[in-house]
Design a binder for these strands. Structure first.
Lengths: 213, 213
DNA sequence: GAGCGCTTGTTAAATATTTCTCTTGCAATT
DNA sequence: AATTGCAAGAGAAATATTTAACAAGCGCTC
């Protein structure tokens, strides 16, 4: 990580996608993967794959390829996801409740340790019996104190768009380090907080553009 | 669109994000927006904003800025979302049911006209009373014929990862033009079908990388 | 243990993208 | 109708990213 000063943002995105492919390979009991194979799975150039890794070290064996488990471990270390991250979800509607029991979060060491809503009693209805027993849903009024007490580092916003900015402000005030906004309304936060907007329609827009052109 | 032969992929992504900002401005009753304002909202450079638009035409007024409604219209036209797109959702678990009633899809002219599951009777339990009456859930066995009959153009996969590839194959066989994969397992499709994987954990991975570094 | 096949890591070249600077033109004002 | 201020559009320069080409090196076989 000393060799290169600047890592392309796109490289980081791809690392995450290589990781998903490696997990896929792991379930299929594949032990090694070449840059060509990963490139193929992720629709990128093989040189790109090797270059992406080269920013961070040497993880492969010449003539052989990459050891799936090892590479997976190394990517997790690079991304900083080799430890548990504590998450709080705000807005327990349909999407919020779905996230509360989303299995891939658990698998990836993303642990939802708190859930908030403006009306905890009412939203219980969103939680179907099939969902098991997710974390208790608390009132947003006590968000700040709970976030601090439980060490929540990342907030996820799943409120209606009209509430998104208010909730973002609450989370910032409660000192979360990052925010993932699932609501379809863009929010802004101070520079010291990292923000990602995840707009479902944007994924569709992108798809549609390439379908239309 | 004749002036430039190649449009950066990143430009398309940004158009979608400008669009979200314009909608936000519209709800705030703003009539015009400058490139500087949009740049600020989307965390990009103002020249970038102008350049992105310049690929497709001249949408602004010098000295004034861009008319919010007009620009919104033009971006929709560019992206190809100035008409309704018919969508089918496969896998009606928690995430799938949440999407069935996701308001922003409707607002954006994305219409879910079909929903499938391996066990339609069972998954009704996922649909809470609050959700109203989403589209009827059908058995995947009849996916192909329903997709064709209802003119589904885009398939959304919200099954468990183990089923994702099978469903992708079904959708391809039913002649959808594009697939949006919400399941955490990467799928592959023939080149003539457009695919986007939407991994929630990837958004978190990205956030965490920049929190850790 | 020498040679071969294969795939990595690296450097350099080719592309692509972003940013800067400057020119153009609209609209408001006087 | 001329002047001024402002912000878009265009082209050039600066960066950044991707791709190609090749050298290095591991493990297998003979």
């Amino acid at each position: 990580m000393a060799k290169y000063s600047k890592i392309p943002e796109a490289t980081i995105r791809r690392l995450s996608s290589y990781l998903k492919c490696l997990e896929d390979l792991e379930t299929k009991n594949e032990k090694v993967a070449s840059s060509a194979l990963l490139a193929n799975m992720c629709n990128v150039n093989a040189a790109q794959v090797r270059k992406d890794f080269a920013y961070f070290g040497e993880f492969g064996v010449r003539g052989m390829g990459y050891n799936v488990k090892e590479l997976k471990f190394n990517i997790k270390e690079i991304l900083g996801i080799n430890r548990e991250w504590k998450i709080g979800v705000v807005g327990i509607g349909n999407m919020g409740s779905a996230l509360l029991v989303y299995k891939d979060f658990l698998k990836q060491n993303y642990k939802i340790v708190a859930a908030f809503d403006i009306d905890p009693a009412k939203v219980i209805g969103h939680i179907s019996e099939k969902m098991g027993r997710p974390v208790e849903i608390l009132h947003v009024d006590i968000l700040k104190e709970v976030v601090k007490a439980r060490g929540v580092e990342i907030g996820i916003i799943t409120t209606p768009p009209s509430e998104a900015q208010k909730v973002a402000n609450l989370l910032v005030d409660a000192n979360v380090k990052g925010i993932l906004n699932f609501s379809p309304s863009p929010v802004t936060v101070p520079k010291h907080v990292k923000l990602r907007n995840l707009f479902f329609t944007s994924a569709l827009d992108n798809l549609v553009y390439y379908l239309s052109n």
